[in-house]
């Protein structure tokens, strides 16, 4: 419960912090941290324009997408406090739940009947498909290391104390940051600031969303970011700490993550569209490295001294 409250709290400021970081690095004054919240508030009260082609799918899609993200959040624990729902294999449900959201987002884009939206839809479908192996190898590795199959048990048993496990810790965090970037359609795979429809991925999918639905999409983006930040924090925070340290550390990690995203976005160029699959497969190979280190730690793979 505490985890969920903290996650929602962080979500309020996350995108604002990213934007502020970017504006600082580019030497602009930039909008305030609360600007995204105000935008959402305005959008929630606005009227909507729907494409003439849309059917019932478009009407329900953005709501279901947001519901899937919110429910995915319920599955995340807070260090050594159980999640609202926790059971063996809950991380599978987590991954598949986010896929439900993606499914509805893609079909709602196809429902609009414009030439652009299909473009974004197929790219997003392809990239999230290519991202799947990295995520599952990562989960399999930590499940193998700890011997448990739920978020709560894994996080409370994942301790980076040995020599090799430092490497794992660094790599896990790296891969999760990258996965979060891709899942949220950020650089280097996608650029939310681009103004050319032909190079958009996610933005072009929500081109024809307006008003309430657009607000839901924005809320979803913020939540998705903090959800991944939550996973990263859970990996790093030790269970031995006092609860107030844990909360402090959690907030610090989320803040650091937001700054990190802003930093990466300021100094990174986006990939050429055809290079994206390669980038995503690189992530898979990094998670394979994690798996092999896991094999060494569990002494299944014996390295000659």
């Amino acid at each position: 419960m505490l985890g969920t409250i903290l996650t929602v709290f962080c979500a309020l400021f996350f995108v604002g912090i990213i934007n502020r970081t970017k504006s600082i690095f580019s030497g602009r004054k930039g909008p305030g941290i609360l600007q995204p919240l105000k935008d959402i508030y305005v959008l929630l009260r606005k009227g909507s324009v729907f494409s003439t082609s849309t059917s019932f799918v478009f009407q329900i899609a953005s709501s279901i997408t947001l519901a899937s993200i919110i429910c995915a959040m319920f599955l995340l624990p807070f260090v050594n406090e159980k999640a609202i729902i926790s059971f063996k294999g809950d991380f599978l449900l987590f991954a598949y739940l986010l896929a439900v959201g993606k499914f509805f987002q893609i079909i709602s884009a196809l429902d609009v009947g414009s030439g652009f939206e299909g473009m974004g839809a197929n790219r997003e479908a392809l990239y999230s498909m290519l991202l799947e192996p990295a995520f599952f190898i990562l989960l399999a590795s930590v499940a193998m290391l700890t011997g448990y199959t739920s978020f709560y048990e894994i996080f409370s048993h994942l301790q980076f104390t040995e020599n090799y496990s430092y490497i794992i810790g660094i790599l896990v965090v790296y891969v999760f940051v990258q996965i979060a970037m891709v899942e949220n359609s950020r650089l280097p795979v996608d650029d939310p600031k681009t103004h050319l429809e032909l190079t958009m991925v996610h933005e072009v999918m929500v081109l024809d969303n307006s008003g309430f639905d657009m607000a839901l999409a924005h809320i979803g983006t913020s939540l998705k970011f903090v959800i991944y930040g939550n996973i990263i924090a859970n990996c790093l925070i030790s269970t031995q700490l006092e609860w107030f340290y844990q909360i402090g550390l959690f907030l610090a990690i989320q803040f650091g993550f937001a700054v990190c995203v802003g930093y990466l976005e300021s100094f990174r160029a986006r990939n050429k569209m055809m290079r994206n699959p390669q980038f995503l497969l690189t992530l898979t190979s990094i998670s394979l490295i994690i798996f092999f280190i896991g094999l060494i730690i569990t002494s299944k793979l014996v390295v000659n001294q």
């Binding site: 059917s55 799918v57 079909i107 884009a109 196809l110 429902d111 009947g113 479908a125 498909m129």
Partner: peptide, 21 residues
């Protein structure tokens, strides 16, 4: 996992192209 991802790709396509737009 890949089968799942590809299936999503395939059925968003099939449903989207046949029933939507």
């Amino acid at each position: 996992a890949l089968i799942g991802g590809l299936a999503i790709f395939c059925f968003t396509k099939a449903f989207g192209i046949v029933f939507l737009g």
